[in-house]
Design a binder for these strands. Structure first.
Length: 438
DNA sequence: TCTGGGGTCCTCTGCCCT
DNA sequence: TCTGAGGGCAGAGGACCC
């Protein structure tokens, strides 16, 4: 193998969340473990190979998973613990290269082009990474090695163990795809394996008789652009020929920060939704501040009982200064919507992000405070019924910074907006806590 | 037989301005 | 002064990924 040709490693942990649970509680070893939402609308986030053997998959509704595997051990999940293990994992990666592109808690691309003198060929590095992951974390991972990210990712999938009815069949652990083998490796695979092909695009392509990447590769770029749109069409054409110019990116600018939540039962009026909106907005504001970011656009997302989804957004001329301001704009957006049909999911996010420091210089412009051009959506607000930035926003921002400090010290439920106090409790506010999957 | 949560990117449409 | 073309931008929806 010529080292310079193969420089991308894709490292993917095997059943990460479920494996961490088994590691922390060895009595679960050999049993079907399912990690995910435990509520009536929960889905599977991760499951052990024993569970997979019964047909359970990630993103499957938990109710369906339990029908397939009634003796499954269901665990709600501990995001903080997974994040801790993920930190260890990245420490292992840093032993081999500084060029790391994290994809999620349990997955990353590594560019090892500068690591050959110390650690050998890319394939040898792949094996070393696997060994170190097992030594440091006590868990297993699979590694794909190739010239490009897409092929490295598909290779790591090949390297994984497989769940069968008779038990788990171990995988090779490391799979290398040489440049001259790329097309033979790619073309027999289903088009769904390509980035950018989801269920909808796959269905559209199937109408043209395209089932495999090889079928796709014989189509012209123009035809693909007509079927899948300009950007996606071009990308698919390149990928199907093994061309993938994307390099391993060590830092990707954050574009938005948000929270959304599916309710156990649908909410039918604004009064029911308001406290949830305040809680979500407060949490988004807190995350923005802790990331040292601010934004200009508030997005409100609603998913109705029939699963249709709408997003409403509003942009300010200047940066958002406080959670209260996010809440106010999101509330005004919600005000104008009919929630009668039943809302199953509510989400709040902030986009058009920039670092707080660079935004500060502009934060108190006269325009932001009182110019109609920056007025928000119709609704309760200024005397003309339009939304205005309130002159007390900077003071609010200071209060919220103090609240953040209290939370840092006494926990996230220690203090928060009065609207979010849990009924019957005078001490704790309802908090998002450790319920994110990342 | 129901479909989470955190995101990104692309496309289309309508509005405003030149 | 009116009108159309075209660019830029915001808002909305859809598709996709992990």
């Amino acid at each position: 193998m010529s080292a310079p040709d193969l420089e991308v490693l894709h490292v993917d942990m095997d059943c990460f969340f479920a494996a961490v649970e088994v590691l922390d509680d060895p009595s679960l070893s050999g049993r079907p473990v399912v990690v995910g939402g435990t509520g009536p609308r929960g889905v599977v986030a991760s499951c052990s190979y024993e569970a997979r053997a019964t047909g359970v998959r990630s993103a499957m509704p938990m109710a369906q998973a339990l029908r397939r595997c009634p003796n499954a051990v269901v665990i709600g999940g501990r995001h903080a613990r997974y994040a801790e293990m993920s930190e260890l994992l990245h420490g292992v990666f840093r032993e081999f290269t500084p060029v790391i592109e994290p994809i999620s808690l349990d997955e990353a691309f590594l560019d090892v082009s500068g690591s050959h003198r110390l650690f050998g060929t890319s394939e040898e590095i792949g094996h070393r990474v696997r060994r170190r992951v097992t030594e440091v974390l006590g868990l297993t991972c699979s590694v794909g090695v190739a010239r490009t990210k897409l092929i490295a990712k598909l290779a790591s999938r090949e390297a994984k163990p497989r769940a069968t009815r008779k038990g788990t069949v171990p995988g090779p652990g490391v799979v290398v795809v040489l440049p001259e083998e790329e097309l033979a490796f790619l073309h027999p695979r289903p088009v769904r394996d390509l980035w950018g092909v989801g269920p909808k695009t796959a269905e559209r392509l199937a109408r043209y008789g395209v089932q495999t990447i090889g079928d796709l590769a014989v189509l012209s770029a123009d035809s693909l652009e007509r079927v899948a749109g300009r950007a996606v069409g071009r990308q698919l054409h390149a990928l199907s020929h093994g061309e993938d110019a994307r390099s391993v990116q060590t830092s990707v600018a954050l574009k938005s920060i948000g929270h959304e939540e599916t309710f156990p039962t649908d909410r039918h009026d604004h009064a029911e939704l308001h406290p949830e909106l305040v809680r979500l907005s407060d949490s988004v504001g807190r995350r923005l501040r802790s990331a040292g970011m601010t934004g200009r656009t508030v997005n409100l997302k609603l998913r109705f009982a029939d699963f249709s989804t709408i997003v409403r957004s509003h942009s300010l001329a200047g940066p958002l200064l406080s959670s209260a301001e996010i809440t106010r704009i999101a509330s005004a957006l919600l005000e104008g919507l009919d929630v009668g049909p039943g809302v199953r999911l509510l989400g709040v996010s902030v986009s058009s992000l920039e670092p707080l420091e660079s935004a500060r210089g502009r934060q108190l412009s006269l325009i932001d405070l009182d110019h109609p051009a920056t007025a928000g959506p119709e609704g309760p607000g200024g005397p003309d019924g339009r939304q205005r930035r309130r002159p007390d926003e900077p003071a609010r921002a200071e209060v919220e910074a103090a609240v953040d400090a209290i939370r840092q010290r006494y926990g996230s439920g220690a203090v928060g907006p009065a609207t979010t106090v849990e009924p019957g409790s005078r001490l704790r506010v309802k908090d998002l806590g450790d319920r994110q999957w990342g």
